[in-house]
Write a protein that binds this DNA or RNA. Sequence first.
DNA 1: ATATGTGAATAGGTTCACAGCC
DNA 2: GGCTGTGAACCTATTCACATAT
Lengths: 176, 176
Amino acid sequence: MSSEALAKAAGVKSTQLRKDLTYFGQFGTRGLGYDVEQLARMITDTLGTNSLQPVILVGVGNLGSALLRYRGFEKEGFEIVGAFDLAPDPRRARQNAKAVLTMGDLPAFVRQRGVRMAILTVPATAAQEVTNTLVQCGIAGILNFAPIVLQVPEEVTVNNVNLAIELENLSYFIQD
Amino acid sequence: MSSEALAKAAGVKSTQLRKDLTYFGQFGTRGLGYDVEQLARMITDTLGTNSLQPVILVGVGNLGSALLRYRGFEKEGFEIVGAFDLAPDPRRARQNAKAVLTMGDLPAFVRQRGVRMAILTVPATAAQEVTNTLVQCGIAGILNFAPIVLQVPEEVTVNNVNLAIELENLSYFIQD
DNA sequence: ATATGTGAATAGGTTCACAGCC
DNA sequence: GGCTGTGAACCTATTCACATAT
């Protein structure tokens, strides 16, 4: 498949796609294009998603329990292996497939299973404190839904998702 | 409050914050800083979030019903005034505060209430078709959770949110 | 003294143009 | 002939340095 076709599917320009790919090596054949299967393999290798990755979710409130029920992570190679909350709501627990453990169980769980990624859906007021705990337990990547800037050591990566900001963004662009 | 303090809270450099603000005007006083209240007012004015904005949600599956239950939009000035699905699940409807209407009700609803923004949480296979409908009804901004590139006319703005990609992103950066 | 606003310098990212290879 | 890979050109965004205002 040509970079042109791939680019169209991804919504970018073909030159962009080619340049981006070459940062990791040469995967195409001139005059022909890219071998899709080989390309997919190299991408999962690069991203580190070739094996199923365990993830924990912290904060089983509205958004958290929503994400627990969301099955979109699995087909991309992520499994939410544990959910934690300060005070697990037994009604919520029944709705969710996974049991919701208390925060006290978190350190042992993370260390035992070698979990490296966490989805953080606690209230903003608790986010930094929980983050500190996560970092201490060896979590290296945090997908943060709390609307604050988390303070973490350099070796920990934070990815922020703020749904309200996404809407505000839209709101600005749709103004006549 | 100084740009320095604001910048720290936002997780950016102070010069960045100042330059960004001046794209919209001059709001600070030299030697003193910014009047927080006035600044907040000008930002909501600029974003168009000073009045409560109606939003619809289309696709009440796992993620969709999750977002319906999520209360984080409201305090930023957005209200999900309607939810739509091809085949509303009566069990889900009972869980949600809002009634879930069928897709057939969508056009009249949107036109009547002058809704301009939509949250799209339908399966990828249905996303483009639903988008076409939304555009026809006059929706000008779409917050798209489906993992595809939506084709829309120039005057319509699409903001993509892909939670799986966010995790993949993390996965890459946490590799030893 | 202190902090903004901003031109100039720098860095970063995207697109062009085309050489190189199938 | 067709399509990749890539230096060069271009464009955009960030940071610096400092004049300017309180």
